[in-house]
Amino acid sequence: MKKSVMIVGVGGQGTLLASRLLGGVAMDAGYDVKVSEVHGMSQRGGSVVTYVKFGDEPVYSPVINEGEADVIISFELLEGARWLSYLKKGGKLLVNSQKMAPMPVITGTAVYPEGIEEKLAAAGADVTVIDALSLAEEAGSSKATNVVLMGLASKFMGFSEESWQKAIDTYVPAKFLDMNKKAFALGQKA
């Protein structure tokens, strides 16, 4: 068994923490794991992608290519569309309905596409869209959007509840722990 999961979004949305949670859970389950991250200039408000791969056989490449992802978790609506081509046939696409206008849209040289959710479904993707931002705000802060989405993703990963809770305890700073646990639970119920 080998699983390829992509966490995509906009730099600053907390995709790194999300990938570390998933990497931690997979390691805890005894799998070989690779997590590929983005640092430096490309993370400043740009489109960011983190790859998490795990399995009971060796994981060689740390990156995921077109048509290879079992699950894509997108922290922003347009980013879900951008990375659709990386989804495997029959793969699962989990998308936050939050919209963030990229600079070419702000400057008026491009248009933010309409009806993305419908178009993703029409393209044949098994897509689930939730309003993770509102759920995060319900949990206490918009900054917990990433953990809401990982709560949703946990339903499709097959790891135990305890191992997720352990990963949250390990990777989330203590003073934000309660809020993030609440956010995770709201994501699970979404």
Binding site: Q43, G45, G46, S47, L78, R82, P102, P104, P113
Partner: peptide, 8 residues
């Protein structure tokens, strides 16, 4: 899909 380059 509109590009999303890094920004300040």
């Amino acid at each position: 899909i509109p590009a999303r380059p890094p920004v300040m």
